[in-house]
Simulated scan of single mutants.
Amino acid sequence: MTNRQQNAAWQAAQQWRERARQARPSQGASGLKLLATWLLFGAMMIVGTLLGLFFLIIGWAMLPFLRHRMKKRAEAFRADHARPAGGNGAQDASAQDTTHASQVLEGDYHVKSGD
């Protein structure tokens, strides 16, 4: 035993054990703290689950309104980009928006000779 007490590593381990024993909280308080922590955690989990379900139901309730709005936008987009039925190509081209790249400029064109 005297050999162990003189060993520096043995003394350091004993000091570490003593510090750990002193830092340990009393057993009575830790049981109550543990119970309170679990109860608080459980209550927060329940509240979070209820909030999640609430927002899920609200999202599901809003889906028909969102679908109706998107359908109206799609109809307006199709109406804006629709070509009129019938008529010839010149009228179709002039009826389109001037920013379209497919529009052809009308006029007289001459082919240059290859000289």
Rank of each mutant, 00 (worst) to 15 (best):
M1C: 09
M1D: 09
M1V: 08
T2H: 06
T2L: 11
T2Q: 08
T2N: 13
T2R: 05
N3Q: 12
R4K: 12
Q6L: 05
Q6D: 13
A9D: 15
W10Q: 08
Q11D: 05
Q11G: 05
A13T: 11
Q14R: 11
Q15V: 05
Q15M: 06
W16I: 01
R17D: 09
E18S: 15
E18K: 10
R19P: 09
A20P: 05
R21H: 14
Q22D: 11
A23S: 14
A23V: 06
A23T: 02
A23H: 14
P25H: 01
P25F: 05
P25A: 03
P25L: 02
A29W: 10
A29S: 12
S30H: 01
S30M: 12
G31K: 00
G31W: 00
G31H: 00
G31P: 00
L32N: 09
K33G: 05
L35V: 08
L35S: 04
L35W: 08
A36H: 13
A36L: 13
A36F: 15
W38Y: 11
L39G: 05
L40K: 02
G42W: 03
G42Y: 02
G42M: 03
M44R: 07
M44Q: 11
M45D: 04
G48M: 00
T49A: 13
L50H: 03
G52T: 00
L53D: 02
F54S: 13
F54V: 06
F54H: 15
F54R: 10
F55W: 07
L56A: 07
I57W: 07
G59D: 14
W60Y: 10
A61P: 00
M62A: 15
L63A: 10
L63P: 00
L63Q: 15
P64C: 06
F65C: 02
L66T: 14
R69K: 13
R69D: 10
M70D: 14
K71H: 13
K71R: 15
K72E: 14
K72V: 11
K72Q: 13
E75W: 04
E75R: 07
F77P: 00
R78G: 01
A79K: 05
A79I: 02
D80K: 06
R83P: 02
P84Q: 06
A85R: 04
G86A: 11
G86E: 02
G86T: 01
N88R: 04
N88M: 01
G89T: 05
A90R: 12
A90D: 14
A90C: 00
D92R: 01
A93K: 00
A93R: 00
A93S: 13
A93E: 12
Q96N: 06
D97I: 01
D97W: 06
A101Y: 08
A101T: 07
Q103K: 15
Q103C: 05
Q103W: 01
Q103D: 05
V104M: 13
V104N: 04
L105M: 06
L105F: 03
L105Q: 13
G107D: 05
G107P: 01
D108T: 13
Y109H: 10
Y109V: 08
Y109I: 08
H110A: 13
H110V: 11
H110R: 10
H110C: 04
K112H: 07
K112E: 03
D115M: 00
D115L: 00
